[in-house]
Amino acid sequence: MTRMAATRDGYGQALLDLADNEKVVVLEADLGKSTKSLHFRKAYPDRTISCGIGEQNMLLVGAGLAASGYIPFASTFAIFTERAFEQMRNGVARPNLAVHLCGSHGGTHTGTDGSSAQSIEDLAVFRTLPNVVVMHPCDDVSTRALTMQLPGLGKPSYMRTARNKTPVLYDGREDEIQIGKGVVLREGYDVAIISCGVLVSESLKAAEALAEEGINATVVDMHTLKPIDGELIDSLVAQCGALVTAEDHNVIGGLGSAVAEYIVSNSFAPLEMVGVPDRFGESGQADEMLEVMGISAPYIANAAKEAISRK
């Protein structure tokens, strides 16, 4: 039986694991119970700063702490990180201060709160900022592993986590996780499905369905969108000759765009992009939202066939 867990729990656990580093501080904006920074707050109240419901202030308090030698981890819902975009741009990214921002409850998978809470732009907007590393891990183990590596990063980061549980893929394999390096989860030679976040497990399902039709797909967990793992993309193009990207994010600006930007200037292959089709969501269960948005496993499988047909 596959273990199910939410990536946000991996983030909360990692903060606790990092607490031995006395320079690690945690910033909250009234959503610590949701983003899971609450465990750190309870154990280390002197190193936790509540900023109330004030995300703009939180980002810059983080910048001030980072400029004073601390390693701040700030979190809120992904959608509300966007409210502080210019603070991230001008106060964090521009002076290259290593503030680590986590946006939980990202994507339409967030579900029944509806479109106001379903961030489908966060990966795109933060990807446009120089100096900022952008990540969207797929399970709690890899989220924990990536978060644990952030104190050594020396530059700012944005990580999207998810509200709802998804299959755990990396139990006992956390050593394979490295910022900036995609992970091949399944090997095939007909098409490569490059995915992130909650759609990684959907991509694996799609690969299984394709296998029943005699199509062998590689599946990659591209947990780091920026910097994108170009070396891996080159090898996927060489090996498969057709690519699909899959993400719970607007098809404009996210993982698909990052891969497209890379291949147009490097090794080229047909690419089909599965993502939210430039529309807002609505209230619905997580699995229902993937269907409504056309980003669940069957859609990924169809996109794979389309990419193969364009070889």
Partner: peptide, 20 residues
């Protein structure tokens, strides 16, 4: 001590410095 130019940001940054 701070890269400014966009108004409304310095006080928050100062709060971070003071907290540190």
């Amino acid at each position: 001590d701070f890269s400014a130019g966009s108004l409304g940001m310095g006080l928050s940054f100062g709060m971070g410095c003071a907290s540190a």
